[in-house]
Amino acid sequence: MRVDEPTATGYDNRTAFAEELAALARADDRIVAVCNDSVGSSNLGAFREEFPDRLINVGIAEQNMVGVGAGLASTGLIPFVCGAGPFITGRSTEQVKADVAYSQHPVILCGMSPGMAYGELGPTHHSVEDLSWMRALPGLDLIVPADRQQTRQAMRALVAEPRPTYMRIGRHKVPDVTNEGDTLVRGRIDVAVPGDDVAIIATGTLVSRALLASRQLAEAGLSARVLNAAWISPLDEATILDAARSTRAVVVAEEANTAGGLGAAVAQLVAGQGIGVRVVSLGLTEFAPTGSNDLLLEHFGLTSDNIVRVATNALEARGA
């Protein structure tokens, strides 16, 4: 893991997704894409040009889209089913449950523009419940890549071993937080930065902010361990428990609702072990007001400054 200063500029995972999907499809004719009129928003225009028969656009019909994905998978194909995060999870939750997770059809569900990426379009278009909803389904993997590299690696891993999966594909530029050559392993959470005062467990867009927070904390003499929780289900319990046992406070940061998301998973795990460490969960607790993605991240305290503040307070409350 690299610890470069996160920058305002970067690369968007959606572009990496589109490039990787085409590259994978060139090498493997089992790969198909399914979408709900979202050729543009899923960045599938070039894929359609190159593989017109292998892009199945069912129109604005998400329940059918997920069922079609399950049917394609059941014939031996590897479908990447793409739709805006709120709709592919919310509108078709029962299809994800029955047709994908319970049936164990190896469909790769791609939630495009997740979190609050749609900013001013509002809570109808925000996908902040997806981690809670999808995490509740047995037999469904959950991946939130933090950068373009992890996006590509997740896709390669899934093509090598197709399995029912929901993965988030961000639309905004994010800095690289991993290096080419770093490997993403199913069910393993990487320790991006070592440390033993506080653990920051971040996912997706929050990883770069957590890395920045760790640098700020270091300047204040506190060592923060940063975990990049990309492959969330199945959960890497060992790495999380080690972080909780080795530090005096845990902060979890996710662009998602705190009810049932990664923070809830960590708190349940840590409390279940009787580890007396405070677990603070940063995320959404209500529908977002009108604002840009950046403004809303700030509004809900999903910034490096707030991670520093919360981590410091947690350590003080503990009497550090």
């Binding site: 198909v32 199945i56 329940q63 059918n64 889209m65 997920v66 069922g67 079609v68 994905g69 399950a70 049917g71 394609l72 998978a73 059941s74 014939t75 031996g76 194909l77 479908p79 299809q95 047709d99 059809h105």
Partner: peptide
């Protein structure tokens, strides 16, 4: 039926 549609396309 949606799954059947996917199977028919896949086949």
């Amino acid at each position: 039926l949606p799954v059947a549609v996917g199977q028919a396309i896949g086949l």
